[in-house]
Design a protein around this nucleic acid. Structure first.
Lengths: 253, 253
DNA sequence: AAATGACCGGATAACCGTATACGGTCAAGT
DNA sequence: ACTTGACCGTATACGGTTATCCGGTCATTT
C-alpha cells in the first residue's frame, strides 16, 4: 500500500488525515487570529487565545506553524492574496490602466485594516511586529515583475520618460503612503469617503506618472495586456508565498 | 523721567537693561537648545543643559520663558519664521506660482531637521512633544489667509474646480507628507537628493491641483500677486507668534 | 534691577524580587 | 496518527520602595 510506503518515507511534515479539512482548519484559525489582532492588537493576542476561540488545542496550532510569528505571517499573506485577487477580479471589469490599477490597489487597501496597518506600520495594531521584517517582505508580492511592467509602460508611452525609475517608484509610493496616512489625522470634515479617496489617489498618481498626451489604441491594448499580466504575476507570487505559509514547511531553507 | 514712571508701572515682565542685548541672549539660548534637541532629542534635553552650554544660569532662562515648553515653542516658531522668510525671499526671484510655492516650501522643509521632525511628528527628535498640541498649532502660520489664497487661485483658473476644498487640502497635504516620509524609509539607492525631491513634490502637487490648460497673462499676474500676498501674510503671522514667544509674555490670554 | 545657583517638591527612573503569562514541547490519550 | 493540554523555562509584568532627576522658585549677590 502506498500509505505504508509514505509513512516509511515521512520526513518532517507528513500529510495528515484529510488535506482539505486540514486546510479548512488552518483558515479557521487565521480567521480567529485576524479577528483578535484587530480587536486587541498583535502584542496582546496570544496563541492560547487563538486556540481557545478556534476550538482547538494550542498544540494543534503548532501542527500548522512552527512559531507564533509564522502564524501571523500567514495571516498577512492570506490577506494580501485576497486583496490582490480582488484587484485582479475588478480590473477585469474595466480598462486595465495604471490609473485603474492604482485606484483598485488603494480601494482594496483602504477596506482591509490589516493591510492598511501593515503598509502604514501601525504599531497600534501590529505592535512590535511593526518595524521588524516589514522592510522587504511587505511589498515583495508587488515587486514581482514590477520592473518589467514599468518598462513595458514606458515602451508604449504610458509612463513619463523624464523621471528615472527610482523617481517613478518614489513618486508612486509617496503618493500612496501620503494619501493613506493623512486623512486619518485630519479633522473629520476634511476626510473623503474611502472610494473617493481611492479616486483621488488614482488621479494624483496618474497625473504624476502618466505623460500628458493620448495613447494610440494599439498601445492602450498592449498596456492593458501588460497590466493584466502584471497583476496575474502578483497574484501568483502572493499565492505561492501563502501556500508555503499554510503548509507548515520551513520558509527559509 | 520716563524710566522712573515705567518702574512704578511694572507689572510682570519689565523690559531689562538693554532690549537688544536681551533679545540676542534669547536667540543664543535658542541656538543652544536647537543644537541639543537635534543631538539628544527633546526628552533628554534639560533646561540646565541648555543653561550651562549657553553660559547662563538656569534662572536666567526663566526670565525669558515661563516654562520649558514655552522655550521649545519659541524654538520651533523661530525655525518656522526663518523657513517661511526664506521661502518669501526665494519666491521673489522667479515666477510666484502654486508650484513654485510648493517647491520652496518642500525645499526649505527638507533642509531644516526641526521643521521636518515637527511636520512628520518624529518622536525620535521631539519625544513626548510629538502628539501633543501639534494638531492645530503647527500649520497655523500657513493657515492664515489660506482659504482666501485658494479662492483667488480658483477665480483665476489656476486651481482645479472639480475638487472640493476639502479634497484640495487633502491632496496637498497628502503629497507633501508622503514625499517627506517615504524617501527616508527607502533603500538608499532610491532616495533622490533633496533639491530633486522638492522638484518632484512641486511637480506632483502642481499636476494634481492645477488645471491642464495655460493661463492668460493677466490671470498669471493676479496669481503671482496673490501668492506673494499669501506668503507675506504667512511671514507676518509667523513673526507675530514668534515675537510673543520671545517676550516672555503669556501666550494664551 | 538683573542675574545667579542653592534649594524644593513632585515626577520619573532604577532597582528588585516575585509572580504571572506565554511560547513552545511532548508524553499520554483516543 | 492526530490531537490534546499539562508542563517547562524564560521573558515580561507587577508592585512596592528608593533614589535621582529636573522643572521651577526665590533669597542672595553684584
Amino acid at each position: 500500500m502506498v500509505g505504508v510506503v509514505e509513512s516509511r518515507i515521512r520526513r518532517v511534515g507528513r500529510p495528515p488525515q484529510d488535506a482539505s479539512q486540514r486546510l479548512a482548519r488552518a483558515h479557521h484559525i487565521l480567521d480567529v487570529a485576524g479577528d483578535l489582532v484587530l480587536r486587541w492588537g498583535y502584542d496582546k493576542t496570544t496563541v492560547e487565545d487563538i486556540a481557545r476561540r478556534a476550538g482547538v488545542a494550542k498544540g494543534t496550532i503548532y501542527l500548522h506553524w512552527k512559531t507564533r510569528e509564522e502564524l501571523f505571517a500567514a495571516l498577512l499573506r492570506r490577506e494580501r492574496v485576497e486583496m490582490i485577487t480582488e484587484v485582479r477580479r475588478r480590473i477585469g471589469e474595466g480598462p486595465a490602466t495604471l490609473r485603474e490599477l492604482l485606484r483598485l490597489l488603494a480601494s482594496e487597501t483602504l477596506s482591509r485594516p490589516l493591510i492598511r496597518a501593515s503598509v502604514l506600520g501601525d504599531s497600534e495594531v501590529l505592535g512590535r511586529l511593526t518595524r521588524q521584517k516589514r522592510d522587504r517582505t511587505a511589498g515583495a508580492e508587488l515587486d514581482a515583475g514590477f520592473q518589467g511592467y514599468f518598462g513595458t509602460l514606458l515602451e508604449h508611452g504610458a509612463l513619463r520618460s523624464d523621471l528615472s525609475p527610482a523617481e517613478q517608484v518614489t513618486t508612486l509610493v509617496s503618493i500612496l503612503y501620503g494619501f493613506l496616512s493623512v486623512p486619518s489625522m485630519m479633522p473629520a470634515g476634511y476626510r473623503p469617503a474611502d472610494e473617493r479617496l481611492a479616486e483621488l489617489i488614482a488621479d494624483a498618481g496618474g497625473r504624476a506618472l502618466e505623460p500628458g498626451g493620448p495613447i494610440p489604441p494599439a498601445a492602450a491594448r498592449a498596456v492593458a495586456r501588460a497590466t493584466l499580466e502584471y497583476v496575474d504575476a502578483a497574484v501568483e507570487a502572493a499565492q505561492r508565498k501563502l501556500r508555503v505559509s499554510l503548509g507548515s514547511e520551513e520558509s527559509k531553507p
